[in-house]
Design a protein around this nucleic acid. Structure first.
Length: 495
RNA sequence: GGUCCCAUCGUCUAGUGGUCUAGGAUAUCGGCCUCUCACGCCGAAGACACGGGUUCGAGUCCCGUUGGGACUGCCA
């Protein structure tokens, strides 16, 4: 069987965005699945917009997502010669011709057609010029582009797309498209096809927005006498208003980088993204890497575009709720030692990291992370909500303070008493702490909940969290005692 | 305007003529659990765009309408 070779060819005009990442993921999965080769090819022929910085950002994004490639990155600009040679070959074989029509002339014709509400196609003015005519124009120094001589007459280009099935484009609906600019540089339709031929690409998996290019490229393949690859066009990712997502319209919200900064786990993003336009017939949605590679197939790709439910200005979700839910799922279920490096990175960035967390406090650190992770949504939460566990200074939520502490005036005395009892404990474990606090509640004839919630707030500044006894054990005796003793000051501040 | 593609709960989707009084996920709401909040579990609400055919039978096939999208560049 022929070796599968696929490619991901981003144009380096910005950061890697969700749509591009999705394309890369599908190609990567297909390569993994078939033990094939994934090639990264930077399509940088648009010198105006391409930047080196962008190349770095895209590769960086791919690496972060865990998408590995086998060849490249190749740079399209390095192969200009191949493109020119292909054009030359087509010129010699008569599949293309030089067109001397100027921008102005074409624009005028387009405009006229628009006025008549007519469909505009290049009218073929230069298609049938004689060799003498062409020679003459060239001698005069007239600039020309090279156009493809699309077959005229009935029929069309027929091909089978792995996703959309058999598609036909009539010749009459394809104009004599330009393949080389008047400055001699090749256009995407040409260079992309030539590169795919050189790279021996067997499967072109790309966005549905390229569906219209496909017949043209097939014509080029055929004119060059090359074997066609298989095509698979994947549906596009739209925003909630059904517009194609773009860096330009949505800014950072659609950049892979954004999700990294907001505390996404790369695999959670990959898992979410792959589901945007692909599914299995069973009900599985969570896949490990191996499971996903195993389950992936071109047949499972959907035909309809999907909406990436980005939330702008939503207080509750900063992006698609399903993406967040998936991230939270991985956060609380992934092997702890895989999560730890992310937590460490967050704490370091927030200035909360202490080397002992990886040293003599390692066991404590691990069990604490394990304790708190189940209610977190992103790795950012470890540095925000996790602050009371890793630092001495943490925010106290005003509303929570009122509800759990100030509302019960007696806590002003009870909390320090609790501090005393806890301080006296020989060993500070969830069990011993529970005994002490429940015992105190009985003694004071008060519902344990009042002491528990009061203590939680005094110790963490929060109203929610893991079971209190575990929380106290995690925060540690010394800090718990200190924080409980400070409780009266909250009342004083109010007076 | 033209060419092409698409159309199931808010969103992601299962569904390839009968098992669909349409399944799952997420989000929402309610309950259980409980020291709180999550998790988990249980439950509720929520969709086949519309109209015609074909067929004994249509979410599933065909046509039309509507809606959405892509392309329509000497961008990629």
């Amino acid at each position: 069987m022929e070796e599968v070779r696929v490619r991901f060819p981003p144009s380096p005009t910005g950061y890697l965005h969700i749509g591009g990442a999705r394309t890369a993921i599908y190609n990567w999965l297909f390569a993994q699945k078939t033990a094939g080769t994934l090639i990264v090819r930077i399509e940088d022929t648009d010198a105006e917009r391409s930047t080196e910085e962008s190349v770095g950002a895209i590769l960086d994004g791919l690496r972060w997502l865990g998408i590995t490639w086998d060849e490249g990155p190749y740079f399209q600009s390095a192969y200009a010669n191949d493109h020119r040679q292909a054009a030359q070959k087509l010129l010699e074989s008569g599949h293309v011709y030089k067109c001397f029509c100027t921008h102005e002339e074409l624009e005028r014709k387009r405009e006229e057609a628009r006025k008549r509400k007519d469909d505009y196609h290049y009218d073929g003015t230069c298609r049938n010029r004689s060799a003498e005519e062409i020679g003459g124009l060239e001698d005069e120094g007239c600039a020309y582009v090279i156009r493809f001589k699309v077959p005229r007459g009935p029929g069309g280009v027929v091909f089978e797309d792995a996703v959309y099935g058999i598609l036909e484009k009539k010749y009459r609906d394809i104009e004599d498209f330009v393949i080389v600019r008047s400055n001699g540089s090749p256009l995407y339709v040409l260079s992309n096809a030539v590169d795919d031929i050189r790279d021996r690409i067997t499967h072109v998996i790309r966005g549905q927005d390229h569906l219209a290019n496909t017949p043209k490229q097939i014509l080029i393949y055929e004119a060059l006498g090359e074997k066609l690859p298989r095509f698979a066009h994947m549906p596009l990712t739209l925003d909630p208003k059904k517009r194609k997502i773009s860096k330009r319209a949505h800014g950072e919200m659609v950049a892979v980088q954004y999700y990294r900064q907001r505390g996404f786990l790369p695999w959670a993003l990959v898992n979410f993204l792959v589901l945007l336009g692909w599914s299995t017939s069973d009900d599985r949605e969570i896949f490990s890497k191996d499971e996903l590679i195993d389950a992936f197939s071109l047949e499972g790709i959907n035909r309809a575009n999907s909406v990436f439910d980005i939330r702008k200005d939503d207080p509750k979700f900063f992006t698609d709720p399903k993406a967040i839910s998936m991230n939270a799922h991985y956060l609380r279920t992934m092997p702890l030692d895989e999560l730890l490096p992310y937590v460490q990175a967050e704490l370091e960035a927030a200035g909360l990291w202490n080397p002992s967390f990886a040293g003599d406090k390692k066991a404590w650190f691990e069990s604490t992370v394990d304790l708190i992770r189940s209610r977190y949504h992103t790795t950012k939460d470890f540095a925000n909500l996790g602050r009371p566990y890793f630092a001495d200074v943490f925010p106290m939520e005003e509303k929570v303070l009122r509800k759990n502490i100030l509302k019960h005036a007696n806590l002003k005395e009870w909390l320090p008493v609790m501090a005393e009892r806890l301080e006296a404990l020989a060993e500070f474990t969830p069990d011993s702490v529970e005994q002490a606090i429940r015992g105190l509640a009985t003694e004071l004839d008060v519902k344990a909940g009042i002491l528990i919630n009061g203590a939680r707030t005094a110790v963490t500044g929060q109203a929610a969290g893991a079971g209190l006894f575990d929380v106290l054990a995690a925060v540690g005796k010394e800090r718990v005692v200190r924080r409980l003793r400070q409780a009266p000051s909250f009342f004083e501040a109010m007076e």
